[in-house]
Write a protein that binds this DNA or RNA. Structure first.
Lengths: 198, 198
DNA sequence: CTTAAATTAGAGTAATTACTCTAATTTCGG
DNA sequence: CCGAAATTAGAGTAATTACTCTAATTTAAG
């Protein structure tokens, strides 16, 4: 494994364990089995390391909320799969969502990038939701201005469920992902046209 | 205003502006117009300052989710008022909810206190919800195991709505509070027995 | 007043931080 | 094999950090 790779993996692990504040570049270098000088040869500062990690995260997210090809009919199962993948990514990069506002507050450049990414992901998600209506999985009362609000609510729940568990001292594992799914289901239940499967 | 008070106010303001990581005890002392030595006379370290601030936050929260006396019938308005107050407090102490998991990760003592507080607040909230059912504001399908999930979802949305706005670079003001309210309403709408007022 | 306790200022410290510099080593095309 | 470029190690630095110490000042009770 090359140096850049080792740095990103070591940094991600340390950030997830201890939070970005407690982890210095020297710690990262040590964990990656290299000298501080070498680390700085590859990334010119700590922010650049964080940015590189987030670039990967965004890349992992891209395929999650893209639509399957037209002829394929989406089902509840489709949504369930995507949401689970969503939780996996959130957990992989949990350090970021734990302290996102603070991180973006001190790095304007990163913030712009994040806002851009979020907007595009929200659009993907809305297209996704629309497809569910077209394919008859969801049905909203006519002219309901709530669709957007419901999606926003689901988004917030999906993005903060794991942090919620962590804050309350509860262990997070594969089962937690499923429970997060059920929360989304609880919100959407009144609009589901199929059976009562959760 | 006495020294302890000045420290807490200065610290809260700086934390909200810059995040706890960027704010040193020296900064706080300067902002409170006193020497570092004096600050340490009143609080033995930074964690103790944060804990003192959170003690206030918890105290402000206590009355929010306590029930009105039995004879008073609760209405949608009751819920709306409490939720608005909820958002006010979240905004006043936004630094904490921005980086809560990271803060609790490095301060075990604080984490225990927080977990205790959250559990008690969740219970209050469930009693609150039950009262709404009794008073006929909300109606859930019989034997629905979703009530708890819906409350959890509402809780997560309520606690993370402002951070969601901040993360996406949107300004937060009194109107934002109202919009957060509407998200909760969108979730609860199918279970509301009264009119369609949002 | 006197005096003791509470409060304050401010200099000082050891540790840690992000980051630089130089020199050594490795890699690799020709 | 050569030499240049890429990579690495590790010592070093200036700044900042949380926190301590001592001595000065204020407060308040008798």
């Amino acid at each position: 494994m090359n140096a850049k790779e080792r740095i990103l993996q070591a940094a991600t692990a340390l950030f997830n364990e201890q939070g970005t504040g407690k982890v210095s570049t020297n710690h990262i270098a040590a964990a990656a089995h290299m000298s501080p000088g070498n680390l700085y040869y590859h990334y010119k500062n700590k922010e650049e390391i964080i940015e590189a990690i987030l670039d990967r995260m965004y890349a992992e997210w891209d395929p999650v909320w893209t639509l399957p090809d037209e002829p394929v009919r989406v089902t509840e199962k489709t949504l369930r799969e995507r949401l689970l993948r969503n939780f996996e990514i959130l957990w992989e990069y949990r350090f970021f969502y734990r302290e996102a506002v603070a991180l973006l507050l001190v790095d304007e450049r990163l913030k712009r990038k994040h806002v851009r990414m979020t907007e595009s992901r929200m659009q993907d998600q809305e297209r996704f939701a629309h497809r569910f209506v077209v394919d008859g999985v969801l049905r909203f009362p006519e002219g309901s201005a709530d669709v957007r609000k419901l999606i926003t609510a689901c988004w917030i729940v999906a993005n903060n469920w794991l942090a919620f568990l962590e804050m309350n001292g509860e262990a997070v594992d594969a089962r937690s992902f499923g429970e997060g799914l059920e929360l989304i289901w609880a919100i959407l239940r009144p609009y589901l046209t199929e059976g009562e499967t959760g």
